[in-house]
Structure formats: structure tokens, C-alpha cells
């Protein structure tokens, strides 16, 4: 009996092929297997026969929404900055979307980065993607030569070892704490919806840090980012980091130095996270692609927690609710305003 992922892979191929064949879409964005076990890479199928290369498993960690604007743009005729938009309908693109990716697409639609009419969103309820670092840890850091997966376990083999690992144990933190695994917008659905998940302590990781003293938190933060090599993989993998000139690359003004000085690194991480405030859907791409294992998701998760707490908002759940930093309420909380001095602080 085929596994869930095998069934999904089959359905993806069938659907992509028919969308391409009928000319509904000019391209279909999914994943194909990478060169290493447990590495998937984004793949664009442009012909019906390409669809056979599409694949789905627990290692699809990169948010496909990241590639969508550029892919859409590639189908537009070239034009100069002030030329009128091309007339007539432009080619569409099909794309796979789990819960967090679809929410991310919602944000991008709200921010005019994706034209909803030009995408055929193929929704897949996410069962959680695997954290390769957790997996490596399970096998003691030994080199993995192949991974076989069924619905609830992974069989990992390498030079002189084969281990069966409980899949959920190595699922990414963001997926483990995800409450919206289902796509929020889609045109086609593959598999079944899993429904909202109840996670009472979805912000547990943030709560733990908040419980630390101010100095401990600073040490934690310093320690967390100390290995950063400023490669910007986190930024590049993030679909929300779409500025043509990122603040880290700007020289007028120079917000952040380009060195790996700890202050510059800290400012980079603070601002990167802050720029995602009220927008980040916790897809985990940033963390998944970090070569140094920095858990920068904790930063965005903190902001996500505060946005929910202060403004009762979660990004990407619908197209209508305005993003929290471009709206306000007269009675927004303002405990932080001086003269409302916080308890316990003035010890």
C-alpha cells in the first residue's frame, strides 16, 4: 500500500500534468528530489512530461511562495518602468501550498507581490516537515546515504548503520507547534484537510526565554547569533524579504555594518525579525536553510506571539484583515507608554 506522501506525489503529478496540458498554467511550481538524501529542491515543470519529476515528502522545507513572484514575472513581456501593464490575461502558474505557505501567499497578495488571478494554488494539508538537523542528531551526526519514509517513521541508512526513527520526533519545531496546517486559500486540493490543531503551548519556546532574567536573555541572544556568518541564507529563503535593496545592503543610509561584528550581526537579526512582524507565517524556511543552525525563528515567533496577544491577529488567515502595522485601533494596548510604569521594573 502506498504511503500518504506517495499518494500525494501521484496526485500532484496528475494534476500538474493536466493543468499544463490544458494550458491552464504555463508552469507548475513544486519540488523535486535533490542530489542528497533528505534534500528537496524547488522545481518548475513547464511541460506536461516534466510533471513526472515532481515529488513530495517530509523534506519539502523551503517555502515555495518565495519563488512565485519571480516565476510570475518571467511570463510577463519585458517593459520599461513606466510602460502600461500588458494587456490581456497573462499566463498563470500553479503552485503547491501547505498551511503556512498559503498564509504567506495571502500576505504577499495583500502586499501586491502576487496577483491572485494568476496563480492556481494547489493546497496540501501539511503533516509537518522534517528538520534535517534533528535527524542528523538522531544518528549521531553520521553521514546519511539514504532515507526511506513511510507514514510515521523514517528509515535512515548510512555507512554501517540503519536506524528507524519516529517521524514526529524529528519534525521541525515550527511544524510541531503549527495550529493551521491546512491551506487557507486554494483552487485545487490534494489529499484531505486535517483541520485546526490545538496546541496549548504553541509559544512554549518563547515563553521559556521570556522566563529568563534580562542578562540571561542577552546571553542567550548573543550566543544564538554568535555563529552567524552573515550569509543571508535566511533572508534569501524568506518569501517576505522581497525588497530590491535589503537594509543590510544599503549604503545610503548604512543601517548595519557589513562586518561580522557582533553589534552588526545583532542589528541584522533584530531588524530582519522586526521586518517580519505581523507578516511572518512561521514557515521555518529561514531556520531550515541556515548553515550554522541559528534558531532565528525564535525571534519571529516572539513577534508573532506579541502580535496575537496585542492585536489579536495572525498573518495570512484571510485577504481582508489589514496587516497589523498598517492599521490601528484607538484602544490599542499602551502599557509600555511611560507614566504607566511597569510593575517590578523599578526595583
Amino acid at each position: 500500500m502506498p504511503s500518504i506522501n506517495e499518494k500525494i506525489t501521484e496526485e500532484i503529478r496528475k494534476l500538474a500534468s493536466s493543468l499544463l496540458d490544458s494550458g491552464t498554467v504555463a508552469a507548475f511550481l513544486g519540488f523535486t528530489k535533490g542530489t542528497l538524501p533528505g534534500r528537496m529542491q524547488p522545481f518548475v515543470a513547464r511541460k506536461p512530461e516534466d510533471a513526472q519529476k515532481l515529488h513530495w515528502n517530509s523534506f519539502c522545507v523551503v517555502n515555495l511562495a518565495n519563488y512565485l513572484p519571480a516565476l510570475l514575472k518571467s511570463f510577463e513581456p519585458p517593459r520599461r518602468p513606466n510602460d502600461p501593464p500588458p494587456e490581456g490575461p497573462l499566463p498563470k502558474v500553479g503552485v503547491l501550498a501547505t498551511g503556512c505557505w498559503s498564509r504567506n501567499m495571502v500576505v504577499q497578495i495583500q502586499e501586491n507581490q502576487i496577483d491572485r488571478d494568476r496563480v492556481v494554488i494547489v493546497g496540501i494539508s501539511s503533516r509537518g516537515m522534517v528538520d534535517r538537523k534533528k535527524l542528523l542528531e538522531k544518528v549521531g551526526g553520521r553521514e546519511i546515504t539514504s532515507i526511506d519514509e513511510d507514514d510515521h517513521s523514517l528509515t535512515v541508512t548510512g555507512q554501517g548503520f540503519e536506524e528507524k526513527i519516529n517521524r514526529w520526533d524529528v519534525v521541525r519545531d515550527n511544524c510541531q507547534t503549527c495550529v493551521h496546517p491546512d491551506p487557507v486559500i486554494y483552487d485545487e486540493l490534494i489529499g484531505e484537510l486535517g483541520g485546526e490543531r490545538k496546541i496549548p503551548d504553541r509559544f512554549r519556546q518563547v515563553d521559556e526565554i521570556e522566563a529568563l532574567s534580562i542578562d540571561e536573555r542577552w546571553s542567550w541572544f548573543q550566543n544564538e547569533i554568535s555563529s552567524c556568518i552573515r550569509c543571508y541564507a535566511c533572508r534569501n529563503a524568506c518569501p517576505l524579504c522581497y525588497c530590491p535593496t535589503c537594509f543590510v545592503d544599503d549604503s545610503r543610509p548604512q543601517w548595519v555594518g557589513k562586518s561580522i561584528d557582533k553589534v552588526d550581526t545583532a542589528l541584522f537579526h533584530i531588524l530582519r525579525a522586526y521586518h517580519c512582524a505581523g507578516r511572518c507565517t512561521d514557515c521555518g524556511s529561514c531556520e531550515s536553510v541556515c548553515p550554522m543552525g541559528i534558531r532565528m525563528r525564535l525571534f519571529t515567533k516572539k513577534l508573532q506571539k506579541d502580535v496575537l496577544e496585542l492585536y489579536d491577529f495572525e498573518p495570512g488567515l484571510d485577504l481582508e484583515t489589514p496587516l497589523p502595522l498598517s492599521t490601528y485601533r484607538m484602544d490599542d494596548p499602551q502599557d509600555f507608554i511611560l507614566t504607566h510604569i511597569k510593575k517590578g521594573e523599578e526595583k
Binding site: V206, I209, E210, I214, D215, E216, R217, W218, S219, W220, F221, Q222, A266, I270, A273, Y274, A277, G278, F299, K302, L303, D306, V307, L310, Y311, P324, L325, S326, Y328, R329, M330, D332, P333, Q334, F336, I337, K342, E345
Partner: peptide, 25 residues
């Protein structure tokens, strides 16, 4: 409404800075 947008920006920033260990105040 400038101050009302600002209030949201500041509220999140203030909490975030405290989170990473910048002293309140």
C-alpha cells in the same frame, strides 16, 4: 493618526528588545 501607527510599531519593538535582553528603560 501618525502616533497610532507609531504606537503599534513601538509596542512590538519595545517587547522585542526586552526579549533579546535589552534592559527595559
Amino acid at each position: 493618526s501618525g502616533n497610532l501607527y507609531a504606537r503599534r510599531r513601538f509596542a512590538l519593538l519595545e517587547r522585542f528588545l526586552e526579549f533579546i535582553g535589552i534592559e527595559p528603560g
